[in-house]
Design a binder for these strands. Structure first.
Length: 586
RNA sequence: GCCCUCGUAGCUCAGUGGACAGAGCAGCGGACUUCUAAUCCGCGGGUCGCAGGUUCGAAUCCUGCCGAGGGUGCCA
């Protein structure tokens, strides 16, 4: 996996009076990214080489540091010489050598090597690596947290499924992506709110209410047909039955009359209760539930925003409908705001909703997690924000592709066929919340995913979630064992961690801040489960190669217990950010 | 028709301008008197959909084509 760090050379003259010493005791949070420090060093070396006339003057580009795929190429690698060789009319290896000569010393840097065709490879000092086990263990749950984010007020909105039926598998994917993203942004120092937008107004809700009334009447023996385009699902009968059990026949009206609006409202309430319960089962808890009906209330955002659009001349009336004249502001076509029957479209209320987020409630940033079927909506919504002088850049939309449910080779149709699983709750019940979340998070949002129930359910080596959790449980086991033997990490000398497996493990631990940075920058939570697997693997290898509890070697045991403390913290944190449990035994 | 996303090992997927393209699973062969073998070690496996182009360098960027999914003025 290649990750990069960017630093602008121009901004990076060393702070006056600050000396870089070889001492490993200089106070620094373990969460600070060593990659950034190295990028910093390269930027300073470049500037100093230019000042000394070893390199010509030119506008310094961004310094990208990468993790080479092959360990012999170092821990970090700069390709800057290759990128600027034609600009400076020099051979890349000579550029690399010039930078190398001017590289300031750094406690973590053992060596920098020039490698053809012009890479500058940086090698971490093993002693510094070992010392980081202690720094990470000391930081504990505070590792890789805090002030690294922008400190912005961010709102993440996800799922927001119509409260007219139970959540399906696709909603689960949105839930996993949205809540994990929120967790990561919060960990990095943003002030994050998670919100569910309740579509409790509009046509779908009206159809739901009519279907519910039909089912309700059927319970009382009436021959009431499901309305045209009504919801065929059995679950509505369940709701009708529950309302009958709790409130009797109070919603029953003489045959042929319109249903009592109170019945539909009660139905939506019950549906929302179920949705909330299903989401809580996979560790999702919202800070706010926002009602579309409230949005549309007299004097509410919908009316204010529509007026504002109108005032700015973006609204036209045509063919009995009210349109957003979006073709005049860069869109391919106009879009309907109010249909000819007087009912506002989803688009119109969504404009109001997002204006409310960005302007009225003043979030610095709004991140929406949508299924790919809403893709066409992104551009026109941003255009609407621009037309309202709300910053479209403050609105990010993460689109995730759809989910195919499978059992081994067999595709499970998402139709409502009896006996087949369709709801999120069914999946969670069958495979468990941890595996459900892990599998949803594994593929990047942009790729369509197969959710294999058989694999997710399997409690064996084939299932990556247990591989990761097992690493945590194993560490707990060793820690227990150490306590029985009277050993602890107190007074440990981290410098003893020189074994290859120990060094590899610490290097993985050092990656967490970079992974979180990538997740936050790309809004791509799938890096987290991949990292979790890499980390678990580094631990399992360590476990097989390095005995921890060894009463013959108490010093080494203490050092390794320190490493285990650090590893356990990082593993638990990584799992926690995905809202997956870190078990003490399995 | 047009727009968006995707196409990488048998399967599920990472990698999206750098060095001989990676992981897990599946397959084959090894390792438990030792802190949990839900583990570890080794082996085999890829014209990165196809064809051009840009670049010192392309799975990655551009163009065209093929294939899958989604969208496309009064569904959400």
């Amino acid at each position: 996996m290649v990750r990069r760090s960017r630093a602008r050379a121009a901004l990076l003259s060393p702070p006056p009076g600050r000396r870089y010493t070889r001492s490993w005791s200089r106070a620094r949070g373990a969460g600070e990214m060593i990659r950034d420090e190295f990028a910093n060093l390269v930027a300073r070396a470049l500037a100093s080489a230019q000042a000394a006339g070893d390199l010509p003057a030119f506008a310094a580009p961004e310094i990208d540091l990468q993790h080479p795929q092959r360990p012999e190429h170092g821990d970090y690698s700069a390709n800057l010489p290759l990128r600027i060789q034609s600009l400076v009319r020099m051979r890349a290896v000579d550029v690399a050598a010039a930078i190398q000569r001017h590289l300031p010393p750094h406690e973590a840097l053992a060596e920098a090597r020039v490698a053809p065709p012009g890479f500058l490879n940086l090698y971490l000092a093993p002693g510094w690596v070992a010392s980081q086990a202690e720094a990470i263990a000391r930081d504990g749950d505070g590792y890789a947290t805090g002030d690294r984010g922008g400190g912005e007020r961010v709102q993440v909105e996800y799922v927001s499924a119509n409260p007219t039926g139970p959540l399906h598998v696709g909603n689960g994917r949105g839930a996993a992506i949205g809540s994990t993203l929120a967790n990561v942004l919060r960990a990095r120092g943003d002030e994050v709110e998670e919100e569910y937008y309740i579509n409790d107004a509009g046509t779908q809700v009206a159809i739901f209410a009519r279907t519910l009334y039909a089912r309700y009447q059927q319970i009382f023996g009436r021959d009431a047909p499901i309305p045209e385009n009504g919801y065929p699902g059995e679950y509505i009968t369940g709701i009708a039955r529950r309302i009958r059990d709790e409130e009797g026949d109070r919603y029953l009206r003489p045959e042929g009359q319109e249903p009592d609006p109170g019945l539909g409202e009660r139905g939506i309430e019950l549906m929302l209760e179920e949705i909330r319960r299903d989401l809580e089962a996979i560790g999702v808890r919202y800070s706010n539930w926002y009602s579309e009906r409230a949005l549309q209330a007299e004097g509410g955002p919908y009316h204010t925003v529509l007026e504002r659009l109108r005032d700015r001349g973006h609204v036209v009336e045509r063919e009995g409908a009210v349109w957003f004249a979006s073709s005049e502001v860069g869109e391919e076509k106009d879009n309907v705001l109010i249909r000819s029957d007087g009912v506002p479209t989803y688009f119109a209320t969504d404009i109001a909703y997002h204006f409310d987020k960005l302007v009225t409630r003043g979030f610095d940033r709004s991140i929406d997690i949508w299924g790919a079927d809403h893709q066409g909506h992104v551009s026109r919504l941003k255009t609407a924000m621009r037309a309202l002088d709300a910053s479209p850049e403050a609105l990010d939309v993460v689109l995730y592709q759809l989910v195919t449910l499978r059992r081994g080779d067999r595709i499970v149709p998402l139709s409502k066929r009896a006996g087949e699983l369709v709801t999120l709750a069914d999946v969670v019940e069958e495979v468990g919340p941890d595996a459900t979340r892990f599998f949803f998070l594994l593929p990047s949002a942009g790729s369509a995913m197969d959710f294999d129930l058989e694999l997710a359910k399997r409690r064996s080596e084939e299932n990556p979630v247990y591989y990761v959790q097992y690493a945590h449980a194993r560490i707990r086991g060793i820690l227990d064992r150490a306590r029985e033997a009277g050993l602890s990490a107190a007074g440990a000398d981290a410098a003893l961690l020189v074994h290859g497996a120990e060094q590899t493990l610490v290097r993985k631990l050092l990656l967490l801040p970079e992974v979180l940075e990538t997740v936050a920058r790309e809004l791509a939570p799938h890096h987290l489960p991949h990292y979790a697997q890499e980390l678990a693997q580094a631990f399992h290898v360590f476990y097989t190669q390095c005995r921890v509890v060894d009463e013959e070697q108490p010093e080494l045991s203490r050092a390794r217990l320190l490493l285990l403390d650090a590893t356990r913290v990082v593993l638990a944190r990584t799992l926690g950010l995905m809202s997956i449990t870190a078990p003490d035994r399995m």
